[in-house]
Simulated assay, not measured.
Amino acid sequence: MKKFVQIVNNIAYWIFEAKELPPYPNVKDFLEITGREGIEEGFFYNSETGEFTPPIISEPIPVEPQPTLEEMQAQTLLNTEYLVSRSELGLGGNYNDSI
C-alpha cells in the first residue's frame, strides 16, 4: 500500500492509503508520501521545499471567570447601601437627583 496526501490551500487535508492514486479530477492536488513519517492532516505544506510543518497553535486567550449569583447579589447590595448612604448624607444618589 502507498500513502497519499491531498493538499488544499497548502495544507495536508486528507491522508489515505491505496494501491495506486485513484483517478481524481485534480491529480496535481495529491502527493505520494510513502515512507515519510510524522505527516498529519492539518500540517502546512511548502510547495517550494516539499516539506510539511505542524500548524502553530497559539495560546488560548484567558477568559475572566463569570461572577456567581451570590457575588452579583452581594455587589447589588453594596451598591444599594452606598447609594442610600449618599442620599441620607445629602450627597445625592437618588434617581431623581440625576434627572
Rank of each mutant, 00 (worst) to 15 (best):
M1E: 04
K2H: 08
V5M: 09
Q6D: 05
Q6C: 12
Q6S: 07
I7E: 01
V8E: 10
V8P: 01
V8C: 03
N10V: 02
I11K: 04
I11E: 03
A12P: 03
A12K: 04
A12M: 03
Y13T: 01
W14P: 00
F16Q: 02
E17K: 09
E17G: 12
A18K: 05
K19V: 12
K19C: 03
L21Y: 11
P22Q: 09
Y24W: 14
N26A: 12
K28N: 11
K28D: 14
D29C: 03
L31I: 10
E32N: 13
E32D: 15
G35M: 11
G35Q: 07
G35C: 07
R36E: 13
R36F: 07
E37G: 05
E37M: 08
G38R: 04
I39V: 15
E41T: 13
E41K: 05
G42K: 02
F43R: 05
F43N: 12
F44T: 06
S47A: 14
S47D: 13
S47M: 00
E48M: 11
E48L: 15
T49S: 15
T49A: 08
G50S: 12
G50W: 05
E51F: 09
F52K: 06
F52Q: 04
F52A: 06
F52V: 07
P54Y: 00
P54H: 02
I57N: 05
P60F: 10
I61T: 15
I61S: 09
P62K: 14
P62Q: 10
V63P: 00
V63F: 03
P65I: 03
P65K: 07
P67Y: 04
P67L: 05
L69C: 01
L69E: 09
L69G: 05
E70W: 04
E71H: 02
M72P: 01
A74G: 01
A74F: 08
Q75K: 15
Q75A: 15
T76D: 07
L77K: 12
L77Q: 11
L77W: 03
L78S: 09
L78I: 08
L78V: 05
T80C: 04
T80I: 12
E81D: 07
E81Y: 04
Y82G: 06
L83N: 09
L83H: 06
V84A: 08
V84P: 00
S85G: 02
R86G: 02
R86E: 04
S87R: 13
S87C: 07
E88G: 00
E88Y: 12
L89E: 14
L89V: 01
G92S: 08
N94E: 15
N94R: 15
Y95V: 14
Y95K: 13
Y95S: 14
N96I: 13
D97H: 12
S98E: 14
S98R: 14
I99A: 14
I99W: 09
